[in-house]
Design a protein around this nucleic acid. Structure first.
Ligand SMILES: [Zn+2]
Length: 309
DNA sequence: CGACTTTGACCCGCGC
DNA sequence: GCGCGGGTCAAAGTCG
């Protein structure tokens, strides 16, 4: 509950400012407040030496930042893989201790995700609504997905990797934004449908409701399966994870799937900021809103840093 | 020309 | 039965 009191508010907002007014500032990687204390101490030196020291510190900070970025990415990949495995496991033996009966309560408190990234970070909460009615077998897995999108104000999103055909749009009561109905059109016999509507309070949150399971492989991204790829189920999707308290949620972002996810910066300066910076920004912003994951991340990072030093 | 979007009509369950 | 609200159909339009 009161995580904010004891939470070590370490500099998880690495160089991310919630107000992203300065996206181009070249000193972006400097304001990593991990080592800003050390920087602040030695400001009484002569200018030249200070400049040299600053350059050195900047180099170190950049390396640190890069390391953190890689760690974050790897951790997110691991988390998503683990979550996929868990979902697979829970799907295979559903009779096993379905002790998650105390979920479904805090579904409404964390809907207003306070962050403003122009990317589309998505937060899925695949809950099996199989106990809906005593009707016929409702084996259409209904998974609700909260994806965040600020830029696409007008057109509802369809870009989640699959191929959708819109077949309807209705204005619903108690929500000014319309609801769009999509159907998977990649395979002619794929029964997956999808409803997309903006959230009531947060107009920048799109609530997509997937219904059914695809009976065909994923349309795009079949190019990276040449081995040496350890996240096999996710392909090369840049993703971030945020595990909330009660419902299993994850926020990942696959709208910019194969957009130069590598960009190895061999030079210690200039840091190759654009693409990975944006990704890290999204990931970190979606991560930092969650206390549990934040604590875990803090523990992991501090442990790793101690081990490295 | 084919695939997709748009958009009003239609359908259907539910409450009164 | 009737109105209402949500889901789907399909004719017409649009795009590449
Ligand atoms: Zn499909």
């Amino acid at each position: 509950m009161d995580y904010s009191s004891w939470m070590i508010n370490t500099s998880l907002d690495l160089n991310i400012n919630p107000h992203r007014l300065h996206e181009e500032l070249p000193k972006k990687e400097v304001e990593n407040n991990f080592l800003s204390l050390n920087l602040e101490v030695k400001k009484s030196s002569v200018k030249q030496e200070s400049a040299g020291a600053l350059a050195e510190e900047l180099k170190r900070v950049s390396a640190e930042n890069k390391k953190l970025t890689e760690m974050l990415t790897e951790m997110c990949e691991n988390y998503n893989t683990l979550r996929g495995n868990l979902m697979e496991y829970m799907r295979k033996n559903p009779d096993k201790e379905h002790s998650s009966s105390k979920k479904r309560k805090s579904e409404s408190n964390n809907n207003s995700i306070p962050m403003g990234v122009n990317g589309t970070s998505e937060s899925s909460s695949t809950d099996e609504e199989s106990c809906k009615k005593p009707k016929e077998d409702i084996k259409t897995k209904i998974s609700r997905v909260y994806m965040r999108t600020e830029a696409s104000d007008k057109s509802l999103i369809v870009k989640d990797g699959y191929q959708w055909r819109k077949y309807g749009q209705k204005v619903t009561r108690d929500n000014p934004s319309p609801r769009a109905y999509f159907k998977c059109s990649f395979a002619p016999s794929c029964p997956v449908k999808k409803k997309v509507q903006r959230s009531v309070d947060d107009q920048s949150v799109l609530v997509a409701t997937y219904e059914g399971e695809h009976n065909h492989p994923h349309p795009s991204q079949m190019e990276v399966t040449t081995g040496s790829n350890r996240c096999m189920t996710l392909g090369s999707v840049p993703c971030s994870a945020s595990l909330s308290s009660s419902p299993p949620t994850a926020t990942l972002d696959w709208t910019k799937s194969k957009s130069s996810s590598e960009s190895k910066n061999t030079s210690p300066k200039t840091e190759s900021p654009e693409v990975p910076q944006v990704l890290v920004e999204q990931m970190a912003t979606s991560l930092t809103k969650d206390p549990n994951f934040r604590a875990a991340l803090v523990a992991a990072i501090s442990g790793k840093m101690l081990h490295n030093n």
